[in-house]
Simulated assay, not measured.
Amino acid sequence: MAKTDTTHTGSPIAEKKPGSSAEKSSSLKKFFVDSLKDIHYAEEAIIEALTKMQEAATTEELKDAFEDHQLQTKKHVSRLQKVFGLIGEKPEKKKCEAIEGIIKEGEEIIKSTKEGSMTRDAALIIAAQKVEHYEIASYGGLVQLAITLGHDKAAELLERTLEEEEDTDYNLTEIAETHINLDAEQED
């Protein structure tokens, strides 16, 4: 855990590691905070997208998976708000162009696949996994930045979310491999 120095302003300042400059550290912290704002926006957008995906899904198993992930995503938003507090920042959002594109692609899948088909479910799983992979990459990087910046409690919270995102990705793969992909292959 980083040592703190409260001699100048009365507020904790993370001790800098040897060889790092204050400028680099403040630039890294700004990037860290901007990345948190980005994933905060993304998580909120994902909540809305999951409602559409759940409505579009054919099988109850996939509908349930999307519902479960939506509830989990709401917890992720709450956890992110705690992370902002732990690092002394106000929870804010910054438009995430990447998630906007991934969600738009998911909406196109819904429009271009037959309602009630297993092909739609297979395609929705792939769309959902693209979301998961974006989140996994984001949270993986955020965990490491939090550690580097000495925000160990924030890193722990971000790590918990990362693990949940990885579990969701694995569960989606299981659903696809168990029967949806095989059933979709049998459709005309």
Results as ranks from 00 to 15, higher is better:
Met1Val: 08
Ala2Asp: 14
Lys3Glu: 15
Thr4Ala: 09
Thr4Ile: 15
Thr6Val: 15
Thr7Phe: 11
Thr9Asn: 14
Thr9Gly: 14
Thr9Phe: 13
Gly10Thr: 09
Ser11Gln: 13
Ala14Pro: 15
Pro18Gly: 13
Ala22Thr: 05
Ala22Trp: 10
Glu23Arg: 07
Glu23His: 02
Glu23Phe: 05
Ser25Lys: 11
Ser25His: 10
Ser25Asp: 07
Ser26Tyr: 07
Leu28Tyr: 06
Phe31Pro: 06
Phe31Cys: 07
Phe32Asp: 04
Asp34Arg: 09
Asp34Ser: 11
Asp38Gln: 04
Tyr41Cys: 05
Tyr41Ala: 04
Glu43Trp: 01
Glu44Ile: 11
Ala45Glu: 14
Ile46Ser: 00
Glu48Ser: 14
Glu48His: 13
Thr51Gly: 14
Thr51Ser: 13
Lys52Ile: 00
Gln54Thr: 14
Thr58His: 08
Thr58Gly: 12
Thr59Ala: 11
Thr59Arg: 03
Thr59Asp: 02
Glu60Asp: 12
Glu60Ser: 07
Lys63Thr: 10
Asp64Tyr: 07
Glu67Met: 13
Glu67Thr: 13
Asp68Phe: 13
Asp68Leu: 14
Leu71Val: 15
Gln72Ser: 14
Gln72His: 11
Thr73Asn: 01
Lys75Glu: 15
Lys75Ile: 14
Lys75Gln: 07
Lys75Val: 12
Lys75Pro: 07
Arg79Ser: 10
Gln81Lys: 07
Val83Gly: 04
Val83Ala: 09
Leu86Arg: 12
Ile87Lys: 08
Ile87Phe: 14
Lys90Thr: 15
Lys90Cys: 13
Lys90Leu: 10
Pro91Arg: 10
Glu92Trp: 10
Lys95Phe: 12
Lys95His: 06
Cys96Gly: 02
Glu97Met: 05
Ile99Arg: 00
Glu100Asp: 09
Gly101Asn: 01
Gly101Phe: 08
Gly101Ser: 09
Ile102Ser: 02
Ile102Gln: 01
Ile102Ala: 00
Ile103Glu: 01
Glu105Ala: 01
Glu108Arg: 04
Glu108Tyr: 00
Glu108Phe: 00
Ile109His: 03
Ile110Ala: 04
Lys111Trp: 10
Lys114Phe: 13
Glu115Asp: 15
Glu115Lys: 12
Thr119Ile: 08
Asp121Glu: 13
Ala123Leu: 00
Ala123Cys: 12
Ile126Leu: 10
Ala127Tyr: 00
Ala128Trp: 02
Lys130Gln: 04
Lys130His: 02
Val131Ala: 03
Val131Gln: 02
His133Trp: 04
His133Val: 05
Tyr134Ala: 08
Tyr134Phe: 08
Tyr134Arg: 03
Glu135Thr: 01
Ile136Ser: 06
Ile136Gly: 03
Ile136Ala: 11
Gly140Thr: 03
Gly140Cys: 03
Leu142Arg: 01
Val143Arg: 00
Ala146Lys: 06
Ala146Glu: 08
Thr148Ile: 06
Gly150Tyr: 05
Gly150Cys: 05
Ala154Gly: 12
Leu157Glu: 12
Glu163Leu: 02
Glu165Tyr: 07
Glu165Cys: 06
Asp167Pro: 02
Asp167Gln: 05
Thr168Gln: 04
Thr168Asp: 00
Asp169Trp: 01
Tyr170Ser: 04
Asn171Gln: 14
Thr173Trp: 03
Glu174Phe: 06
Ile175Asn: 02
Glu177Pro: 05
Glu177Asn: 11
Thr178His: 06
His179Pro: 07
Asp183Gln: 14
Asp183Ala: 11
Glu185Arg: 12
Glu185Lys: 12
